[in-house]
Simulated scan of single mutants.
Amino acid sequence: MKKWLMVIAAVAISAGAFAADGWMTDFEKAKELAKEQKRHILIDFSGSDWCGWCIKLDKEVFSKQAFKDYAKDNLVLVLADFPRDKSKQSSALQKQNEELSKKFGVRGFPTVFILGPDGETVAKTGYQAGGPEAYVTHVKKLIADVKPEK
């Protein structure tokens, strides 16, 4: 099973589905992976090269090992980035991110959504003070607060 996942990851990386540090950029591939692995999706709507709070969230939480360790085993990470310098983004990626922004009603940055493995919205959040451990606790609570339908 691990070999199979490594092959999928290698193909996805070569196809440009991943950004840095395990963050995916292809939302459809992320949904497929989340469904397959039965993991929640965390989408970070960011202005990575101009938004102060986005940079702070990345520096204080997403780039820290405590968050990475939790995410590696529990989440599929998606970066929907809206940088000023779009030279490193394909037009298809820019279009996808605009469509996602409209679909989720993003009105500011950073905006973070947690989706279930089925792709349905579980929670909306953003920057939270306290570092990676506090953020992981926050995400776990958002996921735990979702009541399964009967």
Rank of each mutant, 00 (worst) to 15 (best):
L142W: 12
Y135Q: 07
F109N: 05
T25L: 08
L115I: 06
A9C: 05
K29G: 08
A66R: 08
D49R: 11
A129S: 13
G119N: 10
L100M: 08
A19Q: 14
F67S: 05
V78A: 08
V122P: 05
K56G: 08
K2W: 07
V122C: 09
V61Q: 08
D85T: 00
I8M: 13
C54R: 01
L93M: 10
S91C: 00
D69I: 05
K64W: 12
E98D: 13
I55E: 07
A9N: 09
D118Q: 10
F109T: 03
N97G: 05
K88D: 09
L5I: 10
G108Q: 12
K103T: 11
Q128E: 11
E60F: 03
P148T: 08
A144N: 14
F45K: 04
K38L: 01
L100I: 03
G116E: 11
D49G: 11
L79N: 13
K95Q: 15
W53F: 07
L93T: 12
G126C: 06
D118W: 07
L5Y: 15
G52Y: 10
A9V: 03
D118M: 08
E133G: 01
L5E: 15
E149A: 15
S90W: 01
S101R: 04
W50L: 06
Q96P: 00
K86G: 01
K3A: 15
E99Y: 02
V146M: 13
T111D: 02
A80C: 13
Q128D: 00
A19F: 14
D85A: 01
K64A: 09
L77E: 10
K56N: 12
E120I: 00
G116W: 06
L115V: 06
Q96F: 00
A20H: 05
G126M: 05
R84L: 09
K56R: 15
L57I: 02
D21I: 02
K31C: 13
T111G: 01
I114A: 03
M24S: 14
F113L: 08
E120D: 11
T125W: 09
G105W: 05
L142C: 10
D81I: 01
E60K: 08
E36V: 00
K64F: 09
F18A: 04
K3M: 13
E28Y: 02
M6W: 06
T137R: 08
S48G: 10
P110S: 11
G47T: 02
E28K: 12
A134G: 04
L142R: 09
E149S: 14
T137H: 02
A30S: 14
A9M: 11
V122K: 04
V61H: 03
I55L: 08
I143G: 10
K147G: 02
G52K: 13
V78C: 10
H40G: 03
K72I: 00
K31R: 13
R39N: 09
G105E: 09
A92D: 14
W4L: 14
